[in-house]
Design a protein around this nucleic acid. Sequence first.
DNA 1: TCTGGGGTCCTAGGACCC
DNA 2: TCTGGGGTCCTAGGACCC
Length: 425
Amino acid sequence: MRAVVDCNSFYCSCEKVFRPDLWKRPVVVLSNNDGCIISRSDEAKKIGIGMAGPYFLAKPLIEKHHVETFSSNYHLYGDMSRRVMDTLRNIIGEDRVEVYSVDEAFLDLSHIPADQLKELADALRDTVYQWTGIEVSVGIATTKTLCKVANHLAKKNKAETNCVYILDTPDKIYEALQKTEVNDIWGVGRKYAVKLMDNGIATAWDLSRIPEEWASRHLGGVIGARLIRELNGKESIKTDKPLVNKKMIATTRMFGDAVSNLRDIKEAIATYTSRAAEKLRRQQGAANVISIFVVPKEKANGPRFSHGPMLSSSVVLSKATADTKELIKPALLMAEKLFEDGRLYKKAGVILSGIVPDESIQGNLFTARRNESRLLMDTIDNVNFSMRDDVVKFAAAGTAKNWKMRQELRSPRYTTRWDEIFNVS
DNA sequence: TCTGGGGTCCTAGGACCC
DNA sequence: TCTGGGGTCCTAGGACCC
C-alpha cells in the first residue's frame, strides 16, 4: 500500500502556528501581488470564501466577518514544509518519502502489515502536529490516484474520519468512488470534467467503468488510459525518484502597478534573470536556451478573466551557461525588441530551458576563466542565500524597483530571519 | 516526366497539478 | 481600480535526413 499525506489549508496553518489568537478564526492567504486567495482556513471556507477567487471580489465578505488576511510569506511556508517532510522521513524512513509539493508527500508503505495501517496513519497525523503544529490528512490505498481519492474524503468530513481514510477492501473502494465526483479526481481538470459530464460520467466509479480506449481517445491519450487503470487499483503512475533537476526554470511576476517604460521592464527582466540563474546554479545546471515574455495590460472583456496575449522571444545560446552576466545580455536585448512605446505592461518573465548538468559543459580549451566566473557566482549565491534576500545583485537589476509587487499584509519570517524571530514574552 | 516511406528531432500548444 | 507562480507531461505537426 501507499499513502498520501497532505497538509490541511497549508499556508493558513503556517500563519496560525505562530498566532494562537487566530486558532478558531477565519484566515486567508493571498497570492503574490495580493491578487488571488490561494489558501483558506476551514472557518473561512464555511463563511463562503471561494478558492482562487480574486481578492477584491471577496473583500466585502472578508471585512464583514473580520477574516484575518495575509500576503504570501514563502520563507515561512518553505521552512515549515521542510519540517513536516523531515518529520515524515523520521517516522517512515528517508527512502520511503516522495515529496510531491510544498504541502504534500507520497509514502511507500509496502513494508507495513495491513492490520497496522490505521495505527500508523494516526501516528503520522499526531506526530506531525506535535512536532510542527501543522494538521495533516492521510489517505491510504493501493495506487496514487486512489490515495488522493481517500485523502479527499478524509478532509471532506473531518469529524467522522479524524483526517484518516483507508481504502483496503473492494467495498470501501466502491463506496469511495461512488462518493467522488469526476471533477474531484486527481488528473481531471475543468476541461475534462465538462467532457465527462457531457458523456454521462458523473462519479469516479462511472469513470472507472469506461473502457481504456475511450479514455485514451478523449482524455489526452496515455494519460487517460493510465487514469482508468489507477482507479481500478493497477499502479500506473511511476514513483521515480523526485525530480531533483528541473527541465525548465522560470521566474515570472505580475507588476504591482502596470509599467510603461523600457527602463522598468529591463530592470524587471534583469532581476528575474538573476533569480532564475540562481535556481539553475543551485541544481548545478547550465541552460542552452533563454526565453523572455511580457504581457501587455488589456481592458477586461468577457465574463471569464483571461490574461491577454503573451509576447515572447527566445535565444539559443552558443553554449550552455549558468552565468548571470551571460544570460542577462541576451535577455535585455530581447526585452528591447519586444517593448513597444506607449503600451502598458502588467507582467513579465524569464524562462531557462535546455538545461544540462553543469559538468557536461564542453568548455573551450582556452577558457580557463570559466572557473573564475563560477567562483564569483558561488560567492554571490552564498551571500544571498545566507541573508535570504538580494543583498548583492547586478547593476542592471536596478535599485528603485517601482515595478515591484505588492505585499502589504505579510507576516514576519519567524523561522528564517533572526530579526523577525518569534518572540515569547 | 516521373517524385516514397520511415525515422528523428524540435517546437508550440494544450492539458493538468499544487 | 484590483484576477499568482512554477512546474510537468503529452501530442501534433513541421523540418530534415537517408
